[in-house]
Every structure is written in C-alpha cells, then in structure tokens.
C-alpha cells in the first residue's frame, strides 16, 4: 500500500500490522520491536527519502507467516548509503539529536537490507518463540 509523505500517515498502517501480529500470536516483545522499526523506517522514508514532499509517496508492503514478519518500506527519493551513516553511539555523535533510527531498526529486526539505490529497506523479524510443531510437542511430552 502507498501512503502520503506526512509523519502521521503511518498510523493506520502500523495499527493494522500490530493487530495482525497480535491475532497471529506474536509476543509483546515482537510487537514492540516491529512497531519501533516500522516507525523509524517510515520516518526515514518521509524525512530523508521523500524530503517531506507531499507529492511523493511511501510504499509499505508486509507479509506475516507462522514464524516471521517481513516488511518493506520504499520511498521515492534518491536513496542513501547505509554504510555511510555514522554510529550514533560513538564520540560526539552520542550528543547529537539525530541518527539513531537505523541503529534501532538493525537492533530490533533480525534482517535489515537496503536495495542498491538505498531508497527501499526490507526488514524481517522472526517470532520471539516460534510455536511448537506437533512433532516437537510430542517429543517434549
């Protein structure tokens, strides 16, 4: 789905994804992690990617299966090199107000991959505790 380049536009999408995760039995930790990563990816797309241009959109695609969620957030900007983003935990960066979004995305998601252009990010988080398969359940019994 595509949403506008305003910082509040992700609210409904976020709510929908959180509700689906809850229905699928993902833990509160998973919900917190995905919510935070999605929020940060969306803010980056709107602010740094689309530069708050209301004529540009942010595309969000996601899929949920029994043990993971995969989300892609893409903007219409020129892209960036994630390797060139300074580590906000080091030296004077610690006292700078910005630059922590990417770090949080990488910390809370198991996979964070940008496309070559750097204007689309795919993130995967595996369920905190996958549901026991019937085989494992029998073995544990």
């Amino acid at each position: 789905m595509a949403v506008g380049s305003t910082l509040s536009a992700s609210e409904d999408v976020c709510r929908g994804i959180m509700s689906r995760l809850e229905d699928c039995g993902f833990s509160r930790e998973d919900l917190f992690a995905v919510h935070l990563a999605l929020q940060e990816a969306f803010i980056n797309a709107v602010r740094h990617g689309n530069k708050m241009d209301l004529n540009r959109q942010v595309k969000i695609e996601y899929s949920i299966d029994s043990d993971k969620i995969e989300i892609t957030v893409a903007d219409e900007g020129d892209g960036f090199d994630p390797q060139a983003v300074p580590d906000p935990r080091c030296g004077e960066n610690l006292y700078k107000p910005g630059g922590r979004g990417l770090l949080l995305m990488c910390s809370y998601m198991d996979v964070v991959e940008h496309n070559q252009q750097g204007n689309s990010v795919c993130m995967v988080r595996h369920r905190e505790r996958p549901p026991l398969t019937e085989d494992l359940r029998r073995k544990q019994a």
Binding site: F32, H35, L36, Q39, E40, I43, Y95, K96, P97, G98, R100, G101, L104
Partner: peptide, 13 residues
C-alpha cells in the same frame, strides 16, 4: 510505553 528515536533527540536537546 512507546517512543521513537525522535524523543531521544528531544531529550538530548
């Protein structure tokens, strides 16, 4: 219960 990195920036300021 929930905040984004923008709040961390606010705290620094």
């Amino acid at each position: 219960r929930f905040l984004s990195s923008a709040v961390l920036g606010l705290l620094i300021r």
